[in-house]
Design a protein around this nucleic acid. Structure first.
Length: 578
RNA sequence: CGGGGCGUAGCGCAGCCUGGUAGCGCGCCUGCUUUGGGAGCAGGAUGUCGAGUGUUCAAAUCACUCCGCCCCGACCA
């Protein structure tokens, strides 16, 4: 493409509403423009990158045996009512009505549609397993879109769904997708890692998120320094400690202390001259409408997702004042496990505590020397807290590190959540009706592009890895008014086009500096500079965007040098297509 | 949904407090010079000042209402 004919508006100024580097660069390099909050247009350069990612996804999905479909974006309410998510999904689901006043939603994901499709046309185990995928625009009415295409409302996503006859088959499907995702992100040239994650509102048993490592990432995770355990902070497990028996004689007599207006952990520890580690924090939660007490050591934090999963409930919030009053008999700030009128679940952190401090369930009083077993009993001990720097790997006991990342892919084992609700059943070998086992697998396409920029940029702009680069080469004639220079550049341009290289010829009548700056900003991996000086010796200059290294090549060798460089930096599809 | 901020030329911003001719830089157009890292000089175009209502002789400026956008929080594949 000739630069002079391209729609490629680049900018020098950093847009005022772009916070993170990828957002700034995507606007400055003319990849995207915002239409309205959380909704973006992709310009030609940006769309080329999107298509590169999509193509890699297609190749790897096909190779894994998945088949591409294209599903509707507008979906009838009935289907969502059938799965129960019309009620459950909340405001993120954009609902609309047609001229007949019938209700629809814009698809934020496609479990319902795909399950409906499959249940109508798959009847026997002979037709299983199947894995169908699509690359579609999704709409989620995010509360707060931000970071450009990283968290937006309308976004491109690849979603795949697997249907299996049994658990063992579902496991195989999951493993295949896990492997395909690994190939996809490797081919994109990203530094990433799969981490164990909570499965969120999509539901299902367990899942892995594919995280692109980036400081600006919205997700926090921990990685083990020794083994390959890595997990989202929400999910990161904490090993059960060993139970130490305390002799009855070590338990000091229970004592009630007047603590006027002393409520928070900080206030209590200061008032009683103890550390937060000596206090057991009693949090009253509203668990699907019923109160539940969660005990945890005073210096630690409850992981609400763990609590939610442990209790197997839908909604968990900290209890309102009147629920606390009702459950404890005291206002907020004085809750304790002794004689409380709720279930009591304790985090492992309190399992071995002795002679600790708690609220007294009485206004302005706390208890000292409280002991489990003697003063109260807990229903069970469980892993309910947020992992901390001082914790160790739950698998191998090694040290852990806290890192941040961008979630670009997520693979779920859905089980029968949707197939059961929507009655996606088949007949097995024995003529028995069985429910299909599902899996679902997503990749954020736009987000992958943004994540790539987060990992590959410098003060001059984007540095595309070759597999995602919108163009592989840019030819920069230093001065288009010098006939020989332009002619030489045109010749190289035609030769490269002929060889199938994706190339831009910067034929604009601009000063060299402007062209260099633009070439760097839009991040084309290879730049051929054609200038009077080198040309006099029959040479041109090749500059690598990533390393900044320049090499001089005779005119007749430049095309082969380029082809060699490109071949060396594209990860081809391994193995044959199916 | 709660808190805060912003809306003035394509982009980045000043002007508003203290009402009276709408400005600056970049970009854009024309000409001349320049030509290996965002050139110089000269000339030029571009605005419902987010919208509406009110106060006033007079509103970008003051008041009220609405809309949009951004940030923090809550929420969230």
């Amino acid at each position: 493409m000739r630069y002079s004919e391209m729609f490629l508006p680049t900018g020098r100024e950093v847009p005022s509403d772009a916070e993170i580097i990828s957002h700034q660069l995507m606007i400055r390099a003319g990849l995207i423009r915002k239409l309205t909050s959380g909704i973006y247009s992709y310009l030609p350069l940006g769309y080329r990158v999107i298509r590169k990612v999509e193509q890699i996804i297609r190749e790897e999905m096909n190779r894994a045996g998945a088949q591409e479909v294209f599903l509707p974006m507008v979906q009838p309410a009935e289907l969502w009512q059938e799965s129960g998510r019309w009620e459950y999904y909340g405001k993120e689901l954009l609902r609309l009505r047609d001229r007949h006043d019938r209700e629809y939603c814009l698809g934020p994901t496609h479990e319902e549609v795909i399950t409906d499709l499959v249940r109508n046309d798959i009847k026997t185990y002979r037709q299983l397993p199947r894995n169908l995928y699509q690359i579609q625009t999704k709409f989620r009415d995010e509360v707060r879109p931000r970071f450009g295409v990283m968290r937006c409302r309308e976004f491109g996503m690849k979603d795949a769904y697997s249907f299996d006859a049994d658990e063992a088959g579902a496991e195989v499907s999951y493993e295949k997708m896990f492997a395909a995702y690994t190939s996809i992100f490797e081919r994109c040239g990203l530094k990433f890692r799969p981490v164990e994650a909570d499965s969120g509102s999509i539901g299902g048993k367990y899942s892995h998120e594919f995280m692109v490592m980036a400081e600006s990432g919205e997700d926090a995770m921990i990685v083990c320094e020794k083994c390959n355990y890595a997990a989202n902070l929400e999910k990161a497990e904490i090993a059960r400690p060993e139970k130490k028996e305390t002799g009855e004689k070590d338990k000091l007599p229970l004592e009630s202390v007047h603590t006027p207006n002393v409520r928070t952990i900080e206030e209590v520890s200061a008032f009683l001259k103890v550390t937060p580690r000596d206090i057991v924090k009693t949090l009253i939660f509203n668990a699907d409408g019923k109160p539940c007490a969660i005990l945890i050591r005073g210096d630690q934090e409850v992981n609400e997702i763990k609590v939610k999963n442990y209790l197997g409930i839908n909604e968990l919030t900290l209890a309102e004042d009147d629920m606390i009053l009702h459950a404890t008999g005291a206002p907020r700030g004085f809750a304790g496990a002794v004689k409380i009128k709720t279930r009591i679940i304790a985090d492992y952190s309190v399992m071995n505590m002795v002679n600790f401090v708690t609220g007294a369930n009485k206004e302005d009083y706390h208890l000292k020397n409280v002991n489990i077993g003697r003063d109260f009993n807990v229903e069970s001990f469980a892993d309910l807290r947020v992992i901390e720097k001082s914790d160790t790997c739950p698998r191998c006991g090694g040290g852990i590190q806290f890192v941040r990342g961008i979630e670009v892919g997520h693979v779920f084992k859905l089980g029968t959540k949707y197939s059961k609700a929507l009655k996606a059943v088949y007949l097995d070998r024995d003529g028995q009706e069985k429910i299909m086992i599902m899996g679902c697998y997503g990749i954020g396409v736009g987000r992958t592009v943004a994540a790539c920029i987060e990992q590959n940029n410098d003060e001059n702009g984007i540095i595309w890895p070759m597999p995602l680069a919108p163009y592989q080469v840019i030819i920069t004639p230093v001065n288009v008014n010098e006939g020989q220079v332009l002619q030489a550049a045109e010749k190289i341009y035609k030769d490269l086009l002929f060889r199938g290289v994706e190339v831009i010829l910067d034929d604009r009548d601009e000063r060299a500096g402007v062209k260099f700056k633009d070439a760097d900003l839009i991040g084309i991996p290879l730049r051929i500079t054609v200038g009077q000086k080198n040309l006099a010796g029959g040479n041109v200059e090749l500059k690598e965007r990533k390393s900044g290294k320049t090499t001089i090549h005779p005119l007749q060798n430049i095309v082969s040098a380029i082809e060699k460089s490109i071949a060396g930096s594209i990860n081809p599809v391994a193995g044959k297509q199916t």
